[in-house]
């Protein structure tokens, strides 16, 4: 279980980016975080694996606090938390399977990882996961030769091979066309159930958030204004969340 308690962050003095964010998520839940640009969605997500050092609160993964972890402990936490990026953040020059195997680095000795020495089991698993995301035929292709949707699925496979308890997705479909967006969202939803993990995705597409997420968290100016089942998200709440009519987007 992931519990976030009273998370605080300000990049500049007296200009809080996050104030008192608290929520908890059970395994097997797909959570969408929505809110206007600059609300603080990325800041929340990056605090969860401490790519951003926040200013206060607690982040508990199965009871252990990430925020007070030392370097080795943090590495152990990070390998249990996958991350999927808007721009995929793959090593474009390397092959698909090499990029997937990067997800194992957190488990390997520094030297074995530096020179990319993976075990046969790891390679087998990478292939199995590529099959799962529908890219088994692309294993030896360079990532630079893939389409956006395919790259994002490589990114998802990379996070899955970490055997994560949590997957964090920062606008995973913002650079994709509608069809690939549906594929990626469906994939994330299915994987959440199949592996019984927590998936948290920042989204700008409210329609997709309602369709795929179990729960929706609404953020506005660094504050949490909504945290309920997706069905409870009404137009009234959306209006206060975005300040103007976003209802068109829903249809």
């Amino acid at each position: 279980m992931l519990e976030v308690k009273h998370l605080e962050k300000s990049y500049q003095k007296d200009k809080p980016a996050l104030t008192d964010i608290s929520f908890s998520v059970e395994p097997g839940t797909f959570v969408a975080i929505i809110g206007p640009s600059g609300a603080g969605k990325t800041t929340i997500l990056r605090s969860l694996n401490q790519l951003i050092k926040d200013d206060g609160g607690q982040i508990l993964l199965d009871g252990g606090d990430l925020r007070t972890a030392n370097k080795t402990q943090l590495r152990n936490y990070r390998r249990q938390i996958g991350m999927v990026f808007q721009n995929y953040n793959l090593v474009e020059r390397l092959t698909v399977i090499e990029n997937v195997l990067h997800g194992r680095l957190g488990y390997k000795s520094t030297l074995a990882g530096m020179f990319g020495r993976y075990t046969n089991e790891e390679k087998q698993e990478a292939m199995t996961l590529l099959q799962k995301v529908g890219l088994e035929d692309f294993a030896l292709q360079r990532c630079s030769e893939l389409s956006g949707g395919q790259k994002q699925r490589v990114g998802i496979a990379r996070s899955l091979i970490q055997h994560p308890k949590v997957i964090l997705c920062d606008e995973p479909i913002a650079s994709l066309d509608p069809a690939s967006s549906q594929t990626v969202m469906q994939l994330l939803k299915d994987l959440t159930t199949e592996f019984n993990i927590i998936c948290i995705a920042n989204l700008h597409q409210i329609g997709l958030a309602k369709d795929y997420a179990d729960r929706i968290i609404g953020i506005r100016q660094g504050k949490m204004v909504f945290n309920e089942e997706s069905d409870a998200l009404s137009e009234k709440i959306l209006e206060t969340l975005y300040d103007q009519n976003v209802t068109e987007e829903l249809n």
């Binding site: 790519l51 152990n76 390998r79 996958g82 990026f85 953040n89 990067h102 997800g103 990882g113 990319g116």
Partner: peptide
Amino acid sequence: LALKATGASYFQVIFQA
């Protein structure tokens, strides 16, 4: 950033990414 998030160490990030 992506490799750091997987828990990779500094030298792994330099050599692999």
